[in-house]
Amino acid sequence: METSMNWKKLLGLPLVFFALIVLAVGCSKKETEKAEDNPDDEDNTEAAAANAPAVAVDMANGATVTGKITFTGAKPTLNKIQMDAEPSCAAMHNNIPSQEVVINDNGTLRYVMVYVKDGLNGKSYKPIEQKENLDQKGCLYEPHVIGLVNSEELDISNDDKTTHNIHPQPKINREWNESQSSGDVKKKEFTQSEWPPIPVKCNIHPWMKMYIGVFNHPFFAVSGADGTFTIKGLPPGTYTIAAWQEKYGEQTQKVTVKSKEETKVDFNFKG
């Protein structure tokens, strides 16, 4: 009998420690979330904008912001993606590097998200495009970075011969994780604007990663294969334009735009 009671003590001690640590982990996570959810004034304005009724973009009288994302300095050494686990995809590539930094042939940067960070005075705008497409091809996401207006439809397709799972990891929107077999198309949306961009991954093929920025306006663009971007329909005014790159972070510039005029804004990231 005494033995039985002693064993309860023996088992009890680690369990008490276990409970304490679980509590500690839970609390530390909550604190992290609180810190992340604690918005400054600018974010409050964005939140208010997200709740305001969205208005249509005046394309005819709007301003255009164009520019180029250049890259200077030492090129980063990027690790090669190892697709051995998926032979059907490995056969489609030859030593493809990580897409964390994509430098175009003309020395510009691809997949840089350029967006209006500040200056819209809390207004929400309807999307210009009706939907965006995200493709899984050769076990890579195409495009690697995408921008959406909240509640804009996102068509996700799988062109590969293998199954993928799509797993966005948002902080504000609802998280989901769904499998997608070859040839399937899924229609998804993110109902709330969210920044920093939502990381998306495939847990079956862990090298597959991309980012989705969700805004309450359509004034954003992602730099392309020539490093340029174009934002159209911007109402006249003074704005903070931000350029975000997943490895090098964010840069901002103040710019004043006039109706029907094109304004040039270039960004330079250093390696």
């Binding site: 998926e86 199954t163 797993h167 994780n177 499998s179």
Partner: peptide, 26 residues
């Protein structure tokens, strides 16, 4: 370590069956 914890999105079955396609992290 392989970051494969969510490679099977459902539980207790795996892709709705007992034996899923055994690819990648699955």
């Amino acid at each position: 370590s392989n970051d494969a914890g969510l490679s099977i999105p459902d539980w207790p079955l795996s892709y709705g069956r007992l034996v899923p396609p055994l690819i990648g992290g699955i």
